[in-house]
Design a protein around this nucleic acid. Sequence first.
DNA 1: CCCCCAACTGTATGCGCTTACATTCCGTCG
DNA 2: CGACGGAATGTAAGCGCATACAGTTGGGGG
Lengths: 363, 363
Amino acid sequence: MKAATVYDVAAHAGVSIATVSRVLRRPADVRASTRERVLASVQFLGYVPSASARGLAARRTGVLGLFFPSIDDEDDSTEVPFVQDTSVRIVVDIPDSGEVRPPNLYFDEVLRGSEREAWRHGFALMVGVGRGTNPAEMVNDIAGRVDGMAVLARSVPDDLLDHVSRRIPVVLIAGPRRGDDYDHVSVSNTEGMQALTEHLLVTHRITEPVYVAGPADSPDDAERYAGFVQALAAAGIDATALPVLRGDFSRIRARDLAEELLAAGSLPRALVCGNDQMALGFLDVFGPAGVRVPEDVIVTGFDGIEAGRLSTPRLTTVHQPMADLGRAAMRAMLSRLQHPDQPPITSRLPVKVLLRESSEGPV
Amino acid sequence: MKAATVYDVAAHAGVSIATVSRVLRRPADVRASTRERVLASVQFLGYVPSASARGLAARRTGVLGLFFPSIDDEDDSTEVPFVQDTSVRIVVDIPDSGEVRPPNLYFDEVLRGSEREAWRHGFALMVGVGRGTNPAEMVNDIAGRVDGMAVLARSVPDDLLDHVSRRIPVVLIAGPRRGDDYDHVSVSNTEGMQALTEHLLVTHRITEPVYVAGPADSPDDAERYAGFVQALAAAGIDATALPVLRGDFSRIRARDLAEELLAAGSLPRALVCGNDQMALGFLDVFGPAGVRVPEDVIVTGFDGIEAGRLSTPRLTTVHQPMADLGRAAMRAMLSRLQHPDQPPITSRLPVKVLLRESSEGPV
DNA sequence: CCCCCAACTGTATGCGCTTACATTCCGTCG
DNA sequence: CGACGGAATGTAAGCGCATACAGTTGGGGG
């Protein structure tokens, strides 16, 4: 099964390879009768053009890359059963059993948007999710295969980024600009959290909301906290005087914080969480403990993940357009490819505050 | 910013291009001192090898492809805001508002598994999600860029599949073999449904379960129904005598079926659904209508999606290892690449029956 | 009936890298 | 001390396609 090449098609159709190439790239430049003859040969021979050859000759691959670090590092050991295995296991699945994998919705959505936008503009998409070990190799590999790549901010060492950016344009997703010249796309973290906080202050007359922070090195969380502080300041409240709970964006850790809060017996009127997962962690504990949300305590999140729409009560949150983030990243790259010398792009996408029962009370 | 090539590196390091290539591909073949000199030049020049050139020369791209049809065709019109837009919209999000996007978990999971397995074996992954219009172009494009591709069964016309399979190996995901010679990977639909049904018959002494079918042309649903029938047959029950509800795998349609059932006032003791979405649709209607699950009617699903774990009551279902499906698909392709002449692979992955409150009663 | 131009088509080159084969090194053994 | 052989490196030939440029064809105008 030797794959057919332009030469095979050309010979079969009785034309030169240039004509075959034209039929595929610029059909209008070829006489209709010739074109049809060539296409018939393409069909007959099962010809599929080699992207490698085309990429080499045309000096562009027509592929955009997307790299994310892996959040949940799944076990690497498990081998996929390769042969037939039609066994069925029956499991009594108790709630909260270890079978739960926190779905990395964020990545899924960004990927979806990226994929869509790339193809829409005639580009294919290559994805890489960095495994714990060495993203370096992977990023470098991808860089050699694409015309440009988008990378989650902070997920790749600066020097590596420098290195690959000498070959192709790089777009950073979701981080703030840090004195670099890369193109950036992110969402309005600050404004979103500010709007949400302001709503709590004004509509619900909360005066001492407690912020539940994410990891200290998260730029996203920092921006969100800034919005929180600004809203308070605008209302004449000094945020630095208020306590802050330090979480790590995980649901598990948030549950611990919730337990501690209950143990201490000092529930604030409102918990403003840096992301949805943590907010859900609080709900996990409050429900069974008899703490009513939002009557006893208001809980809000940030992200707008699916689980927050399915929880009881449903979670008030700030929804960020994750798919659009991916799309914007691709757009930025395409723009950069067309205008290599334009100034660095900074794209900020709008967010949406979703008021639901965890803050508004039962409908 | 002209990208560096082997020639540049060779010149800078004072060696031939062959040596540069060796340093990158087979470091052991090069003397340590030379190697270091070359690597230093690579670093200095910001050299990233071109995958196009390598692919051409080595006759393999090192990329595996994955193609899925798009289930939810998002609107194509929306343009992503490209400039800064830090506006924040505040929305009172009432339950079941149109904001719901049915998450295509299935694809996400398969993709995740595929990505993982591909990179694990030194291959990159290229993804394509067919937009409504012409998957043909997309599949052909991908086929030209990869060493092999996996495709969701039934998502690509047979003749197209034939065409591209003359160039690269193709693996079909999730469909039954249909007299073709492609490699197939799928899950134990029949066995899983059989085990679940048997459980209902034996443990709960159900005698007349009603099957809720998916689209008539769904091979997966056909296999599941077969398992249902077999379990009944084993218990001496003739399935053909029982009514079957015809759904279409969607939650919406299932809700209609549920309404009809209530209107007719003839609830069966158990509803065995062909997938989770439909089962959830029944729950959506039963809850508010005062029909108790599982006391009045048992409802089961198939797939094991996240939403079924978050519903009230939680859904008894058959969980299929979606990520493993992706992994198995990649494995099959890699195996095929190594042994082009081996007989067609048929890989069936085991499933797991998850007993939860929608069939087992409150814990 | 011939010339000229536009529309097509063919020729030839090179994209950047891998790799078979040739050549050069250099330590070893006789 | 010289021949020998494996290790290291260099040479050169493509891989399959795009494309600049040259050549050919077919009419239409003069």
